[in-house]
């Protein structure tokens, strides 16, 4: 197992190298000029040219890529063009809100979606099943920002139960932290609840028609034991796969959610950096996200071994 983990971690190195080259090249050829944004709208072309020169943006591709690669190898993601702050510091400022949002969303999605999917499969064809599936269709269909606005309207403005926006670090207390994450997590989690519930239902339906389930029933096992001990465990591999994909997708969803709820996370940092053409920040974040994707995939593969004893590495 350890050998497998080591091999997988080592395999991330060429992946990250390809991602780095790809991202750097893409940004190099993409239109846009941070110097023009820094200089402001009233700046003259001469001003912009001087700022470009001072930022080193006129240097050849290979020189810039070589310099950046060397920095990466030394554990330095570079310095933001706009803030003059290290990219690692900017990421460190923003990582807690994003991780918090993802964690609460995932917990919410799994705890709601898996029982819903199991329930729908158990009651297949009944009004309960149809209600759950209607909810899933709703979750898939309504954009995150619409859900976000509606939640803010009802629970913040109308009922005054929760804040409209912002983030409080967990160090300030669990409730203040959670209070700012409930609405964003529900808004972001809806689509994942829908996704996981549908997959759970479909997989459970297949499992529930297997002979060993019939045997379990014939032996007099209770419904709860059949559903959660025998069926769900065997349905876990596709569910875990979808949850893994969901974690990756959450990163994208966080961009919109963080913007609407004014959460100072990595999603907003990414958008701001792209709009301003803050190349070092974009490159740093993309590398971080890529690394996260690789780790999530590795994590999912390892969880397979826990839920399915036939899988061995």
């Amino acid at each position: 197992m350890l050998r497998y983990i080591g091999q997988r971690v080592l395999a991330t190195v060429p992946v990250m190298a390809i991602v780095a080259l790809f991202v750097f090249s893409l940004l190099y050829i993409a239109p846009g000029d941070p110097a023009a944004i820094i200089a402001g709208d009233q700046a003259t072309p001469d001003d912009i040219a001087r700022i470009r020169e001072s930022l080193g943006l006129e240097r050849p591709f290979l020189v810039r890529f070589g310099e950046w690669s060397w920095q990466i190898l030394n554990g330095d993601l570079g310095t933001s063009i706009f803030t003059s702050l290290p990219v690692t510091a900017l990421i460190a400022q923003r990582i807690e809100p994003t991780l918090s949002l993802m964690l609460v969303t995932l917990v919410l999605a799994i705890t709601v979606a898996v029982p819903l999917g199991v329930l729908a499969a158990w009651k297949a064809g009944t009004w309960i099943d149809r209600l759950v599936m209607a909810f899933a269709v709703f979750g898939f269909s309504v954009p995150v920002f619409v859900v976000a606005y509606l939640l803010a309207y009802v629970f913040a403005l109308e009922l005054d139960w929760l804040p409209v926006q912002g983030y409080t670090p967990i160090a300030n207390g669990i409730w203040p932290w959670l209070q700012h994450l409930i609405l964003p997590s529900v808004a972001l989690g809806l689509v994942y609840i829908a996704l996981i519930a549908r997959i759970t239902r479909a997989t459970m339906l297949e499992i529930l028609s297997q002979d060993y389930i019939k045997t379990a029933r014939a032996k007099g096992l209770g419904q709860r034991a059949i559903l959660f001990l025998h069926a769900l465990k065997n349905a876990a591999v596709p569910i875990v796969t979808v949850i893994g994909i969901g974690i990756a997708l959450l990163i994208g969803g966080a961009v919109v959610t963080e913007s609407v709820f004014v959460i100072p996370g990595l999603g907003r940092l990414t958008i701001d950096a792209i709009l301003r053409r803050d190349y070092p920040v974009i490159q740093g974040i993309v590398l971080l996200f890529s690394f996260t994707y690789v780790l999530v995939n590795l994590g999912v593969d390892l969880v397979y071994t826990l839920v399915d004893p036939r899988i061995r590495y």
Binding site: Y149, P163, V164, Q165, S259, F261, V262, R268
Partner: peptide, 17 residues
């Protein structure tokens, strides 16, 4: 407080945030 979304800024102002 930087708020990129005007609807959120509006709601935050109404809510006294």
């Amino acid at each position: 407080v930087i708020m990129p979304d005007p609807a959120t800024a509006s709601a935050a102002l109404q809510n006294g945030e």
